[in-house]
Computed example of a mutant assay.
Amino acid sequence: MNKIITISRQYGSGGREIGEKLAKKLGIPFYDNELITRAAKESGFTESVFERAESKATNSLLYSIAMGMSAYGSQDLGFNNLSLDERIYLAQAEVIRKVATEGSCVIVGRCADYILKENPNVVNVFVWADINSRVERATTMYNMPTKKAEENILKIDKRRANYYNYHANEKWGKAENYHLSIKSDYVGIDNAVEVIKLYVEKGV
């Protein structure tokens, strides 16, 4: 039976590394930026357009307005009436659904947990950590300048939350949206991989 593992994560929590190591240990494909490349190829949009979509979501209200659709819904949902960002999201969602039908895999971010919520073979994981741990990781491993590192990390988290909250109409990081929540600075990266692996293997 195929198992699709989606990983949502706070910035600097090591969620991407956990996902990559998990996929390698399970011997299954890992998708992160690869989704952007594939979606760009299949939709005709450039990769830079996809990369900008999530980074623009700095304010939930302004983002909703910028999307070109009412946050309270629209009666006219024709494709031609969707904003560019909505079309980008739909193109990426289509790719996520496709890779989920191709076999087991690990998918990081991009609302994959919501997009695949009707799939019974999906395990959704949220990875988080204390801010001090995330600052240390961001400055030492991601080369983020130490000055205002915490502020920048929280801004990135806010963008991810607004992007998710808008498209999924759910709250990013809310426990009920995930099967498993892991505090990576408590268990460590490699142990987090083992915890997820065991959870997936012991699941129904």
Rank of each mutant, 00 (worst) to 15 (best):
L84F: 08
M1T: 15
A23D: 08
A66E: 00
D113S: 13
L84G: 03
Y31C: 10
N81A: 02
S48V: 07
V122C: 01
R97H: 06
Y163C: 09
T101L: 09
M144L: 10
Y164E: 14
A149F: 01
K21S: 05
C105E: 10
E94I: 06
D190H: 07
S48M: 11
A175F: 02
W172Y: 09
L35T: 08
S181N: 13
E136Q: 02
K158E: 13
M141C: 12
E151H: 02
N177G: 13
K41N: 07
T58W: 14
S104K: 08
Y31T: 11
Y166M: 12
F45T: 07
K3R: 12
E54Y: 13
D130Y: 14
L35A: 10
M141I: 13
D185R: 00
G103W: 05
V127I: 01
N152C: 02
E47R: 13
L62S: 05
R16D: 06
R9W: 03
T101F: 04
Y142K: 11
V204F: 09
T6F: 09
K202F: 04
N152H: 03
G12M: 09
R134T: 03
Y199D: 00
V106P: 00
Y199A: 03
S60M: 14
R137A: 04
G12Y: 06
E54C: 13
G173F: 15
E17K: 10
G103N: 04
G203W: 11
T37A: 14
C105R: 07
E118Y: 02
N124E: 01
Y89R: 06
G78A: 12
N59T: 02
V123F: 13
S13A: 03
S8N: 12
I28Q: 00
V125Y: 00
S74E: 14
L90T: 11
E54H: 15
G203A: 11
K21T: 08
E194W: 10
A91C: 14
S64C: 06
A175Q: 03
F30L: 09
N33W: 09
K3N: 07
Y163I: 14
S55Q: 14
N162L: 00
C111N: 15
V108T: 04
A93C: 14
E102T: 11
A192N: 06
Y72R: 08
K98P: 15
A175V: 05
S8H: 04
Y142I: 02
E94N: 10
S55G: 10
Y142E: 08
A91D: 11
H167M: 15
E94P: 01
R160Y: 11
N169R: 13
F45M: 08
G44E: 04
Y89F: 15
K158S: 12
G188H: 04
V127P: 02
L90E: 12
